[in-house]
């Protein structure tokens, strides 16, 4: 039996957890899931649809919001009780962090960012290193396998079904909830679609030239019901908020369309966008490294091409 840690934010499921559930189904016919915090119960229908037979909802009066060490403790307590062969989560910052707390509590190895998992003695995994430019075949020497699944390596597939919801007393200690989300502030100006949810991302790099240059990208993104992203140099220069940075040190994305405007394509940026279904580049430089990862390219000045594209879309819609 495999236990999948399903992530949610105030009751809304993390889509990467559906991929983790799908990946877990390939390893075992018996999938159980856990969510942390009572608001997590809201994701029960989706968790069932993606193949978990049971959903444990870990609750505690102090578990009012995301608290990674508390998640680790709840996982540890449930592992002792139901004795799974493996604990799997999405290879997201939250997924990796909570699993690491579990691994630290149990003093067991943990394999992060796996693209392939084979349960056995020892367990065999393939995991991403160097922003997924290199993969490592490794053995995990422990009874319980603790592993995260690299983002976007598995397409989410529903199987139908429903999960029996069981409340689980997380048995927390005071230190476990010392670090938790105490509040939130909005980071982006738009407040629209987030990078991870967007079907279309219009992304700008150094070639945009400055903060004011992003106006035409915002307009196009709005027209396509998408959102604006950017490269690291753009946030480092203070042109755009950090929340919009795509890449290894920013957000990893996988939209239907990634329109890379004036982005040369540093390795760490490619790591964040290469799972996009279609990548289209607009760049003055036909030798830009990003072209090696793109499906289509227009060689030209984004300041001319984007307004022309926006106008053409408006015209096509009448």
């Amino acid at each position: 039996m495999i236990l999948v840690l399903v992530d949610h934010d105030r009751g809304v499921i993390d889509p990467l957890s559906l991929r983790a559930l799908t990946a877990a189904r390939k390893l075992s016919g018996d999938i159980q899931a856990i969510v942390i915090g009572k608001e997590g119960a809201k994701v029960a229908a989706e968790v069932g649809e993606y193949g978990a037979k049971t959903l444990y909802v870990a609750t505690h009066p102090e578990l009012t919001d995301y608290a990674p060490m508390a998640s680790g403790r709840a996982l540890f307590e449930l592992v002792k009780e139901i004795k799974p062969e493996a604990v799997i989560a999405a290879g997201s910052p939250r997924g990796n962090e909570q699993l690491a707390h579990l691994a630290a509590f149990m003093d067991l190895p943990m394999a992060a960012e796996c693209s392939s998992i084979k349960i056995g003695t020892p367990h065999e995994v393939t995991r991403a290193r160097w922003a997924a430019n290199i993969f490592e075949d490794a053995l995990v020497h422990s009874d319980l396998l603790i592993a995260s699944v690299i983002a976007f390596s598995v397409e989410p597939e529903p199987v139908g079904g429903s999960a029996e919801v069981k409340e689980f007393d997380a048995k927390l200690e005071a230190a476990d909830t010392l670090v938790k989300v105490l509040g939130r502030a909005s980071e982006s100006k738009g407040g629209g679609v987030s990078l991870t949810d967007a079907k279309v991302i219009v992304s700008g790099g150094r070639g945009v030239g400055g903060p004011e240059g992003f106006g035409i990208l915002e307009e196009l993104a709005g027209l396509l019901e998408g959102t604006v992203g950017c490269s690291r140099v753009v946030t480092s220069s203070g042109w755009r908020p950090h929340a919009e940075q795509v890449g290894q040190t920013g957000t990893k994305v996988a939209p239907d369309l990634y329109l890379a405007c004036g982005i040369s394509g540093a390795m760490q940026h490619i790591a964040g966008c290469k799972n996009s279904k279609t990548i289209v580049v607009i760049n003055t430089d036909p030798e830009a490294p990003i072209l090696a990862y793109a499906d289509y390219a227009i060689i030209g000045d984004l300041h001319k091409v984007i307004p022309a594209l926006t106008a053409a879309i408006r015209a096509a819609r009448g």
Binding site: G183, S186, L195
Partner: peptide, 12 residues
């Protein structure tokens, strides 16, 4: 930074 928000944390 998570999505379009900043989460606030503190610790002694």
């Amino acid at each position: 930074v998570v999505g379009s928000e900043r989460e606030l944390y503190e610790a002694p």
